[in-house]
């Protein structure tokens, strides 16, 4: 996808550097995943698949840990990431992918593999890939999806509430700057009444939102992987690889 990467502010560069390095690792993993998916013939090599999946997931964890660390320093930069395209930006949900996208991705990939082998599946000769999701798996995925939608809605709702608080305070802040009246009250628990600290207070809220969103993203990813068999997980991670940012 043609990306229109914006020139990063100096303090954003650190995460961008990290992100680029991380992508390199991620790409190496992707190659390994693809190779594994092509070589996989029996369940005997599940152990090696599991260790690969573990490494990939650790890399994701590593990413989210780093993101959380940078998020604490500059949450605003993390919420409008300069390291993705503006197109991707437009589809962001609190600084990343919508957790529910994991299910759409799964259904999409599963659908491709299903059409591919419908006849084998009817005869019960499935290849064990994502087209071959068992009743139990579909049930657990559906259950997880309902739970994820609920959590996503809760975070969205919280974010909306937080965004709404900005109206009051920014109005006050504006008033503040124009009038120069330091006695202006209304910052509530944010303390001093100075615009700066109000901003800090808002940023604290944003940090929490970002944290919750990223937490839900990582948990959803892990929960989906948990439901899948090793080879299915490999297929899923291949499909998910370019999606994450």
């Amino acid at each position: 996808m043609a990306s229109a990467v914006r020139s990063p502010a100096p303090e954003r560069e650190t995460f961008q550097n990290f992100f680029e390095c991380w992508l390199v690792e991620q790409n190496q993993h992707l190659q390994e995943l693809i190779a594994a998916s092509q070589q996989h013939h029996s369940t005997a090599d599940d152990d090696s698949l599991c260790s690969l999946i573990k490494r990939v997931l650790e890399n994701y964890e590593h990413y989210y840990k780093a993101k959380a660390r940078w998020g604490k320093e500059d949450v605003l930069a993390m919420l409008s990431p300069a390291w993705t395209s503006t197109f991707k930006d437009a589809f962001l949900w609190i600084g990343g992918w919508r957790p529910i996208m994991a299910f759409h991705l799964l259904y999409f990939k599963s659908g491709l593999q299903l059409e591919d082998q419908l006849n084998e599946l009817i005869r019960g000769m499935g290849r064990g890939d994502l087209g071959d999701l068992s009743p139990c798996q579909l049930s657990r995925i559906d259950e997880l999806q309902a739970k994820t939608i609920k959590e996503e809605k809760e975070v969205t709702e919280k974010m909306a509430k937080h965004q709404e608080t900005v109206a009051d305070s920014s109005m006050l802040e504006l008033n503040h700057l124009v009038s120069g009246n330091d006695e202006e009250r209304g910052w509530g628990r944010c303390g001093s009444g100075e615009g700066e600290s109000a901003m800090e207070c808002k940023e604290e809220g944003l940090k929490e939102m970002l944290q919750r969103a990223d937490d839900l993203r990582l948990r959803t990813l892990k929960a989906v992987i948990d439901i899948l068999t090793p080879i299915q997980a490999v297929h899923f991670l291949i499909a998910a690889a370019p999606k994450d940012s």
């Binding site: 369940t43 599940d46 419908l118 009817i122 005869r123 019960g124 064990g128 798996q137 068999t229």
Partner: peptide, 20 residues
């Protein structure tokens, strides 16, 4: 699809297949 499923003689699932 339905009638083929109903007619299918399924082999036992291999170990480690979905649902294990």
């Amino acid at each position: 699809v339905a009638r083929m499923c109903l007619r299918a003689q399924k082999p036992p699932s291999p170990p480690g297949s979905p649902g294990s």
